[in-house]
Design a protein around this nucleic acid. Structure first.
Length: 423
RNA sequence: GGAGGAGUGGCCGAGUGGCUUAAGGCGGCAGUCUUGAAAACUGUUGAACGAGAGUUCCGUGGGUUCAAAUCCUACCUCCUCCGCCA
C-alpha cells in the first residue's frame, strides 16, 4: 500500500510513476474520497469531544433532574455521531479498496519500459556446456531415466504435477538441504519452517490479496489459502510488530512447497517441470532499515547467485523494467538459468525490494535507537532458489550422450556419494 | 466433535456502568547516592489519525445507554478435561 500522505501531496507525481508500469492504474476518486473522509472525521470528532465533556458532567451531577436537558440533547448528538460514523465507514472502505489495488511505485533506478522486451541484462556467469550431441529436454532425460513421471502424476492430480522417483526424489531433497545449509551456514540466514496454509490477512499483508485471489488455492470449509511462496508466511511472521533497530537486518530462509493455480497460463510451458501447480522453493526474506534496502537487495541477489555458482550452472541476471515488475515490488532482479535442452534462459529466482509497501499493509515497523516514533521497515525477498527448476537445469546441463546425468560435485555428499544418475 | 474456563499496556495483573486521565508490580530508560557497580530512592516509559484542539484503541464485529474495559450478542484465539487421531 502507498502512503496516503505521499499520495495527497504528490498526486500527479504518483500517477506518472505508476503509469510507467504500463497497465492502467486508476487513481481517480482518491482525492474526492480522501477529502470526504477528512470532513466526516472532523465533524464526528468534534461531536464526540462535546459528548465526552457533557457526559462527564452528567456523571458528576448527583441530582439527575438538573441535567435532563443535557441528557436529551446528548441523545440527539449520539444519533448524529452514529450517522457520521456509518458514512465514514463506507468512505473508508471505498478508499481502502482503492488503495489496496494500487501497485507499488517503481524504484528510481528501475529501468523504464513496458514489457519484458525492455528488461536489461546486467551480467552473465559461467560457460554454457558444449554438448557434442543434441541436448534433450529435461522431461525426456527424466522420463528416460525413470526418475520423473508426469503421466502417473496426471492420474493422481491432473496436469502440471510430477512424481519423482529414486535418485530424482533424492536429488530434489539434496538440493533443498544444500541450499538451506548454504544460506544458514555461509550467509547468516535463520532457518524457519512456517505453515503452508495461511489466512486472508496474511495474504493481504504481502499483496497477493485482494487482487490476485484467482491465482491461489483456497480451502473449502475454512478460509485458508495454500501459500504460493514462502514470502507470505515468512514476511507475516513480524506482522503487527515493532522491531528493535539493533535486531535489523532480520534474515530468514525457509523451504516450503508452493501452490499456484497458474490460471491464465493455459498452453504455456505445458511440458516438464517449468510450470507446476506444486513446486518446492527455498526462499530468502529480509527485514531491513530503509536506508539499507538497496544494498541488501544486492546482497540477497548475490546469495541466490552463489547457489548456481556452486552448482556450476550458467546464468544471467536481469534488471526488470517498470512494466515487468510485480504488483508489490519497487525493484526486481531475476536470475535466469541456461537450459541447453530448450536453448534458452529461464527464470530460476526473482529477488525484489518492496521498500515499505508490504510493511505498511502488514504494519511491520522498527524503532530507531533513542527514537520515540516507530518507522516502517523495508522488506525484501528472493528465491534461493526454485528447487524444481534447479533440478531440471541440472538434468539438462549435466546430461551425457548415453542418457545419464552427472551429479554436481557439491551435491554428491547429499546424494550418499552418488556421482551419476543412470538407468 | 462434546463440556468447562480465559483474553486488559513490552510482561504480570487490579478493575461489574460515571473523577479510570486503566490502579499496582515487573522490565526498560533517566536521575540522586557511590571511586565504579549493586541496592535503595525519585522521575519517566503504548499505538493510530490530526496543523492543533482533540479523537480512537482493554481479542474482533454488532447492540443497549446521556455515558461501556465493565451489560447484551455473534465471532476469533488460547487453556483444561473427554472423544478421535499422525
Amino acid at each position: 500500500m502507498l502512503d496516503i500522505k505521499y499520495l495527497r501531496e504528490n498526486f500527479e507525481g504518483a500517477e506518472k510513476a505508476l503509469a510507467s508500469r504500463g497497465g492502467k492504474v486508476d487513481l481517480s476518486g482518491f482525492q474526492t474520497l480522501d477529502q470526504r473522509r477528512r470532513e466526516l472525521l472532523n465533524e464526528a470528532e468534534s461531536l464526540k469531544a462535546e459528548k465526552n465533556k457533557v457526559s462527564t458532567l452528567i456523571g458528576r451531577t448527583k441530582d439527575k433532574s438538573q441535567v435532563q436537558d443535557e441528557i436529551a440533547r446528548m441523545k440527539d448528538v449520539s444519533g448524529l455521531i452514529k450517522g457520521l460514523d456509518d458514512q465514514l465507514r463506507v468512505v473508508e472502505e471505498q478508499l481502502n479498496e482503492l488503495l489496496m489495488g494500487v501497485p507499488n511505485i517503481p524504484h528510481e533506478h528501475c529501468p523504464v519500459g513496458i514489457s519484458e522486451e525492455d528488461n536489461v541484462e546486467i551480467r552473465t556467469w559461467g560457460e554454457k556446456p558444449a554438448l557434442k550431441f543434441a541436448a534433450k529436454a529435461h522431461w525426456d532425460v527424466g522420463e528416460d531415466l525413470g526418475i520423473l513421471d508426469f503421466e502417473r502424476a496426471a492420474k493422481l492430480s491432473g496436469a502440471r504435477f510430477c512424481i519423482y522417483f529414486g535418485a530424482g526424489a533424492r536429488l530434489e531433497r539434496a538440493l533443498i538441504n544444500f541450499m538451506l545449509d548454504l544460506h544458514t551456514d555461509e550467509h547468516n540466514y535463520t532457518e524457519t519452517l512456517p505453515p503452508f496454509l495461511v489466512n486472508r490477512v496474511s495474504m493481504t499483508g504481502t499483496g497477493q490479496l485482494p487482487k490476485f485471489e484467482s491465482d491461489l488455492f483456497h480451502t473449502e470449509d475454512v478460509d485458508l489459502f495454500l501459500i504460493p511462496t514462502a514470502e507470505v508466511p515468512v514476511t507475516n511472521i513480524h506482522r503487527d510488530e515493532i522491531l528493535a533497530e539493533k535486531d535489523l537486518p532480520l534474515c530468514y530462509t525457509a523451504y516450503t512447497p508452493c501452490f499456484r493455480k497458474e490460471a491464465g497460463s493455459h498452453g504455456k510451458d505445458t511440458r516438464g517441470l517449468i510450470r507446476q501447480h506444486q513446486f518446492n522453493k527455498v526462499e530468502l526474506v529480509k527485514f531491513v532499515r530503509p536506508e539499507d534496502s538497496d544494498a541488501e537487495l544486492e546482497a540477497l541477489l548475490g546469495n541466490a547467485e552463489k547457489v548456481l555458482q556452486l552448482l556450476q550452472l550458467p546464468y544471467r541476471v536481469i534488471d526488470l523494467c517498470t512494466g515487468d515488475i510485480g504488483f508489490s515490488a519497487a525493484r526486481t532482479f531475476d536470475i535466469e538459468v541456461w537450459l541447453p535442452g530448450q536453448e534458452c534462459y529461464r527464470e530460476i529466482s526473482s529477488c525484489s525490494n518492496f521498500r515499505d509497501f508490504q510493511a505498511r499493509r502488514a504494519s511491520i515497523r522498527f524503532r530507531r535507537e533513542g527514537a520515540k516514533k516507530p518507522e516502517l521497515v523495508h522488506t525484501l525477498n528472493g528465491s534461493g532458489l526454485a528447487v524444481g527448476r534447479t533440478l531440471l537445469a541440472i538434468l539438462e546441463n549435466y546430461q551425457q550422450e548415453d542418457g545419464s546425468v552427472l551429479i554436481p560435485q557439491v551435491l554428491q555428499p547429499y546424494m550418499g556419494g552418488l556421482q551419476k544418475i543412470e538407468k
